[in-house]
Design a binder for these strands. Structure first.
Lengths: 146, 146
DNA sequence: AATTTTTATGCAATTTAGTTGCAAAATAAT
DNA sequence: ATTATTTTGCAACTAAATTGCATAAAAATT
């Protein structure tokens, strides 16, 4: 996805939220759209800095929370005890995630859509399904090939 | 499960590990077997104290890591940014988890065994599947019934 | 049985992700 | 222009988890 595209998409997505479309929100959402993997706060801050945007750590946390709340980004628990965030043009289609045990990268598998075949025990009310796969990513498969 | 049972099971499980079967490890594993939900370090420490066992926080963290490493306990990322631990008699049968958004309790759904129907994209090597469901638990369903 | 080696535990200090409260800045509404 | 609302920044704080090192306990060796 080209930077112009992500910017346009980010603007469109922000248009669908309640609240203001600020430079920081736009930039962060753009970063989350453009990224190949899900990023944590630190990585997002670094990427923002690279783009010449400085934003306070706290603001980033709040922005990320807000984006998730608004449904234009989603949050996944990473192995390294941080939250990682990702966004895509097609709003929040539920999908699986894959985290590599070697490099730690967290991929969205947009074509793997979790669904429940068996039913839950009595009394449980389901809101969301989280499907996370663990293993070795393509890159590390090559790297650590025997 | 009665306390005697869990103790016996814990001893058996520890027998299958490399490393020593110490009082702390036995007690912690017993707690993880007896618990209805997955517990975090703090809750485990409280439970241990109730049983008259005092163990350093660091030792608990190390014990938990070790139990997971040895495959006699498993670890799930909780919504509250802590790791929660659980063990069962039948060693590490992969199963789904359910976390309640109201009370935060994390349940093991041992009869819900995740399996992948669709195949992964080229190059990804799968080690483990994590299936976590979010929603309202039976207790909170009653509590917050409209 | 005494000594050496290995493994497990405790303690103190540190790291780091994430949060809170409040003031200042920016934007929108009147 | 003025007022009200929302967003951002700063400083201080919380709490989970980690690290390094010394001590204790258990196992292995002589």
């Amino acid at each position: 996805m080209s930077p112009e595209d992500t910017n346009t998409i980010a603007e469109n997505l922000l248009g669908q939220t309640t609240g203001r479309s600020t430079p920081i929100r736009l930039a962060v959402l753009g970063i989350l759209l453009a990224a190949k993997t899900a990023l944590n706060q630190q990585e997002i801050e670094q990427q923002a800095t690279r783009q010449g945007l400085t934003a306070d750590r706290v603001t980033l946390y709040r922005t990320l929370d807000w984006l998730v709340e608004q449904g234009v980004a989603h949050r996944i628990a990473s192995n390294d005890r941080t939250w990682r965030y990702k966004a895509q043009a097609n709003l929040a289609t539920p999908h699986a995630h894959f985290q590599c045990k070697h490099c730690g990268q967290l991929f969205c598998l947009e074509h793997l859509q979790p669904a429940l075949l068996v039913s839950l025990p009595q009394g449980y009310q389901l809101d969301a399904i989280e499907l996370k796969l663990q293993g070795t990513c393509p890159n590390c498969t090559l790297k650590y090939a025997t």
